[in-house]
């Protein structure tokens, strides 16, 4: 069998909350293949963002390990981490903008790699539906615009692994739909996407597989129809009226 693109073994994360230590991730095991679209769902506070940050190599785990494309990230040096990070990109749940223009923001990742390509910036902005925004001051963007610029900032890097934390949470239905289109087209380019979401329809439409997190544990993993057909999951997730 071909080696998995991403292999997560017994991943644990403990964090300090005031005086006490709290287990946020309690031993996650997960394997993702190249080109797969994986949705992370689970009630708020279940650990989706924490898991994405672990995969994005932004925080070190308390225990367990992540193997990215055959290389273990446990105990990897700063260089190896940087190399791995440069093959990924992440869009945060509440994106922040760097000071300056939209152009400066979208080209950030290119510049730190010693490249700057106006054409790529333009096409990334076009992809998120914000053509002509180059010279806008990033501080003046609306929440939804910021979220889409943050996506363009990641797309422009043509990452092999894209991590999205609720990418359409702030968007109107039309914009959300166009973002969904982008994600679909990424899948056809063999780009791996892991996204946290609360939107079950998006989940059904886009995901190859769905992982359900609950209290820091992975309680269910499977194709969308399998997962949403599971009565127990549905109960725990307090399934809403939108058909799941």
């Amino acid at each position: 069998m071909r080696m998995a693109f991403l292999e997560i073994t017994d991943l644990r994360k403990t964090a300090r909350q005031g005086q006490s230590l709290v287990d946020i991730l309690k031993g996650i095991n997960l394997t993702v293949q190249r080109g797969e679209v994986l949705a992370l769902i689970g009630p708020t506070g279940s650990g989706k963002t924490t898991l994405l940050r672990q995969i994005g190599l932004l925080d070190g785990p308390t225990g367990g390990r992540i193997i990215f494309d055959g290389v273990s990230m446990a105990g990897a040096g700063e260089r190896a981490l940087l190399q791995a990070r440069r093959r990924m990109a992440m869009v945060f749940q509440k994106p922040v903008m760097f000071r300056g223009s939209v152009q400066g923001n979208v080209s950030f990742g290119l510049k730190v790699r010693g490249r700057n390509d106006g054409e790529r910036v333009r096409s990334a902005l076009h992809a998120v539906g914000l053509s002509g925004y180059e010279e806008r001051d990033a501080a003046t963007l609306s929440g939804g615009e910021m979220q889409r610029i943050a996506l363009a900032r990641a797309l422009v890097l043509q990452p092999e692994l894209l991590l999205l934390d609720e990418p359409t949470a702030n968007l109107d239905p039309k914009s959300a739909k166009s973002i969904d289109g982008i994600i679909q087209s990424l899948a056809s380019e063999n780009i791996t996407v892991i996204m946290a979401t609360h939107n079950m329809q998006q989940c059904r439409k886009l995901a190859d597989r769905v992982a359900v997190l609950l209290g820091g544990r992975l309680v269910k993993l499977g194709r969308p129809d399998e997962v949403f057909g599971d009565r127990e999951v549905c109960d725990q997730m307090l399934c809403s009226s939108d058909g799941i």
Partner: peptide, 28 residues
């Protein structure tokens, strides 16, 4: 400067030094 700036820069592939420069620029 918001710690998110650091995370964003890092997630976009900035080196540690580039991160410092970015944060200094935010607080210029």
């Amino acid at each position: 400067v918001s710690p998110q700036i650091k995370d964003t820069a890092r997630s976009l592939g900035a080196t540690e030094i580039q991160i410092i420069v970015t944060v200094i620029n935010e607080a210029r």
